[in-house]
Design a protein around this nucleic acid. Sequence first.
DNA 1: CCGGGGTATGAAACCAGTTCGCAATATCGC
DNA 2: GCGATATTGCGAACTGGTTTCATACCCCGG
Lengths: 161, 161
Amino acid sequence: MKPVRNIAPEPTETPAELLQRYLTRQGLKSTRQRSIIVETFLAAEGHLDVDQLLARVRVQDPRVSAATVYRTMKLLTECGLAHAQNFGGGHTRYESTFRREHHDHLICTGCGTIVEFENDRIEALQDQVARHHGYTIHDHKLELYGLCRDCQARAARGARL
Amino acid sequence: MKPVRNIAPEPTETPAELLQRYLTRQGLKSTRQRSIIVETFLAAEGHLDVDQLLARVRVQDPRVSAATVYRTMKLLTECGLAHAQNFGGGHTRYESTFRREHHDHLICTGCGTIVEFENDRIEALQDQVARHHGYTIHDHKLELYGLCRDCQARAARGARL
DNA sequence: CCGGGGTATGAAACCAGTTCGCAATATCGC
DNA sequence: GCGATATTGCGAACTGGTTTCATACCCCGG
């Protein structure tokens, strides 16, 4: 096992190129399965779990195994192209982080819709809190759970029945 | 399965009394195992996982099974006496929520120490963000991961060797 | 363009945490 | 105390995920 390092994207590089660079640098190989998985993952642009990703990958090639998807997502996470998240329900979800700012999530517990947001003032306050306790933050997770407008309306309607 | 509802503490009630009220109301029974588990859990005042809790419970009664601890913690969570959390590593941790303010966590990824904090300004900003997107928040999770002072020092020392 | 060393893959075994099914047991209202 | 019903402990089953192992593939050197 070689030391894992994630690498910064070159100015004009595509995700696929970055991955290629990473693979080469680490002495890893570019395979058909990896290409399909990465393509599919990048095309999906969402918060997918392994099942969803595997289903889509198998449209291209039904023989790809779950293990390979797990392994590939781990790889993408290590090289900094994907970020693993875990919103409660046991399934790890991945989202692309290619040239993407950090952001947090607002999750509707009714319909599962996820809104991404970013708030510098919150981040600043977080740093302040951490500093106050002598901590150096290297990661954080902020998730807000609630009902979106539609689900609120639906709930109100339901209550009235 | 009856509808689950958590109940608010009466002004002068102890956790054990609240639980008793909950059990009676739901037609459930008070057993020796449940009492031991609840007592142990409340006495521990921390963020315990099931293994830790089971170990302590077995000091009182070695025959209590893991399944019962799981079932009891689920019960406590449902009636609002405990809160389940999941900081990364696959172990669900529980903390007492009896008459406890909401708080967030600052977790040292070096030694696992957990600091609790509360910050009204962050909460206010969260509400603001949610409102802005038309959401009504009913829960949130904020976790800051970093190194505590000691682990920072240790890391610096390690790097120098 | 071919061969070989080393990596990647798929299937199945494995793992840890958690839940479930069931027979035996304990609780609680009457 | 009785009896209906909830609970327990056990082990088996399930879950998401990782690892093993034999085989297939990639890619560099010749």
